[in-house]
């Protein structure tokens, strides 16, 4: 079976503390992988490790993307190659216009792919359909990036970026937390739009709610820096009922 992302025995530190302790995980093309696990288990650390966040120091192991190691790649190279992370806590950037940011990101990608860059007018035309779909007010793209956005608005803006950039591996770190029902539906719709049988998703969540909308193919349990169980979607019910304590690490 082919794999788009192979995480092999990753050990990673934040500061002096080892957070990921020999983590293994493979993402298959076209599949939705959900990761669940207790607070502080290392889920966000895993997502940061994949995108090359400066907090994380990898001490052992390897990450292959489409067969090539990415650990030495800059964050922007990983992004241009098609890896996308929707942040658990997107940062606010006062003074950077959201539309300008989105267009700069899209044009960086287009340039990387040898395509022509879009001007402001062409870009806005492209954007319109997504804004409507995500229920985003038009002024949200004329404002400063994430500045003063509500929690839900920030998450919609992450999904907007995903839609525009059309990445191949999409990591969603608690995209569903803090969303009301309408927002959850809109965000899920955006995610489902990206499913094309080739893209892979890594959905980090604490709740089964979002998994009702975006049907996962695999559930992985991450605990204490490692994936301790992988199963089908039926595992969600067991977790909801008995908690993480009930999971025994597989050999």
């Amino acid at each position: 079976m082919s794999k788009v992302l192979e995480i092999k025995d990753i050990h990673a530190k934040i500061g002096e503390k080892e957070i990921l302790k020999g983590l293994n995980l493979d993402l298959e093309p076209g599949k939705v992988h959900a990761i669940m696990g207790p607070n502080g288990a290392g889920k966000s650390t895993l997502s940061k490790t994949i995108v090359g966040h400066y907090d994380v120091e990898v001490t052992e192991g390897e990450i292959l993307y489409k067969g090539k190691s990415i650990l030495d790649m800059e964050p922007e190279e990983r992004a241009l190659e098609g890896i996308f992370l929707s942040f658990q806590h997107p940062v606010e950037i006062p003074g950077v216009n959201n539309a300008y940011f989105l267009r700069t990101a899209l044009n960086a990608k287009r340039k990387h792919e040898g395509k022509e860059e879009l001007n402001a007018a062409e870009f806005l035309r492209e954007m319109k359909k997504y804004l409507e779909m995500l229920g985003m007010k038009a002024d949200m793209i004329s404002r400063s990036l994430n500045e003063g956005f509500s929690g839900g608005e920030k998450k919609r803006n992450e999904i907007l970026q995903m839609l525009i950039l059309e990445p191949d591996v999409i990591i969603l770190d608690e995209i569903d937390s803090g969303l009301d029902i309408d927002a959850l539906r809109a965000v899920s719709e955006g995610i489902n739009l990206m499913k094309d049988g080739k893209r892979s998703f890594l959905v980090i969540t604490h709740y089964s709610r979002i998994l009702d909308y975006i049907k996962p193919d695999y559930i992985h349990v991450l605990k204490d820096g490692r994936i301790i169980k992988t199963a089908g979607p039926e595992l969600v019910a067991q977790l909801e009922e008995h908690g993480y304590e009930s999971i025994v690490e597989e050999a």
Binding site: E76, V91, I93, A108
Partner: peptide
């Protein structure tokens, strides 16, 4: 420059130079 902001921009494929420029210009 704020490291978090810089990283956010870079994680969207924007080069470090361009990201720094965006933050400096914003200021």
């Amino acid at each position: 420059l704020d490291e978090k902001q810089l990283f956010y921009l870079r994680s969207r494929g924007i080069s470090e130079t361009e990201a720094r420029k965006m933050l400096v210009i914003a200021f």
